[in-house]
Write a protein that binds this DNA or RNA. Sequence first.
DNA 1: ACCTGAACACCGTTCAAGT
DNA 2: ACCTGAACACCGTTCAAGT
Lengths: 226, 226
Amino acid sequence: MAAKRSGALKKRSPRPAQEPRNEPPLSLERIVAAAVYLLDAEGVAGLTMRRLADRLGAGTMSLYWHVDNKGDVLDLALDAVLEYPGPPQPVVPGDWRAEVVHLLEHWRAGMLRHPWSASLLPGRALGPNILNRLELLGGILSRAGVADAELNAAIWSLWNHVMGATVTRASFDFSEDDRAAAQQRLARLGERYPTIERSRLLLDDDWDGTFRKGLDLLLDGLATRR
Amino acid sequence: MAAKRSGALKKRSPRPAQEPRNEPPLSLERIVAAAVYLLDAEGVAGLTMRRLADRLGAGTMSLYWHVDNKGDVLDLALDAVLEYPGPPQPVVPGDWRAEVVHLLEHWRAGMLRHPWSASLLPGRALGPNILNRLELLGGILSRAGVADAELNAAIWSLWNHVMGATVTRASFDFSEDDRAAAQQRLARLGERYPTIERSRLLLDDDWDGTFRKGLDLLLDGLATRR
DNA sequence: ACCTGAACACCGTTCAAGT
DNA sequence: ACCTGAACACCGTTCAAGT
């Protein structure tokens, strides 16, 4: 149940003179940080050039000095959120499965912390952090002995699994109330969708387990192709 | 290169009196059909309540008699595009792999014909046609001997593969010019991303083959779990 | 170099009204 | 039952201008 906003929405005056100064000057970093904050807090629909400028204590059009358009802001926010620190300790060499699992789990965890990122990613430019992750993944698989002719299919299949699992999970992350409603709706539809109902496909919330099992499926398949 | 629009954009007058009559009355079916047309022609950003009404020769607000809001229109267009005629001939019984492949290839082909559908799907309500496809998929796997405890993971993994492969493909479907630009950019970045460059990950356009190979990976993994 | 407000061409939706 | 225009509260971005 959505909490009702108490108190009146203050109409924001164009600089209330309360804290008239002490905003640092605009910069790409500040803009990107504020964009990520807004996206986390309000989702894609909540990111607006006007709101973004407001949050930074600047005029809307000031943003356009640092950025070409709103698409730029999205590209930058996305890549900012996908930084990869690199593999942990000198990973046990030779255990390519562990390496792949670590890379992809870390990737997925990062995107789940910013639920807007997964659905945005396919549509936007591939920033350096994303390319870096693809490069690392390709390297692990290649060293593991995956043939060149199979390499692209392997990379994309793993990528698709991470994207798909993350997007799907984010979209099923509804509240308890929604859950109960879905439960009921499904019970009513039970006779048309018996398998779905029996397996509780839409109610099962073991997303971590599902992700791992699916990943193992892919890795098992890959293991036979080396 | 985008063709330049020749001729002036006519400011549409509110019913030019050219063909003043003979529009059939509004109906859900007409609305949905027009929405699909607009989405196919102009993408998600091109679907606007005002443009939709315009196309139907109606006032914008007339749509709201048939539909609660724009989200409804998207849900209906999406489900309309995902109809499934059912499996073809009495499929060779027992060949679960062939059945799964047919179901998913058909699904993917349908979404590629409407490139907006794949990226929209995860965010919207699951209509009857989508549920029907999930049900069929679950049934095939279950009859093939996939254990109940593994069934959800199997269904979601295949689903994710179809969604991911379709969305990824749609987003890489750029023009020849873009292609050349990407080529160049990648060559410049070659030293930072040697594996990606060597495998031509971002230039390879054998999406059908990639999809099939990834699907085989999953099915091989599944075959060992029955 | 950096920031700004006014203005333009759009959005989705509420409401009170028409037939 | 079905359709409508005016109006509201928004959008992203262009432009000419300020410091």
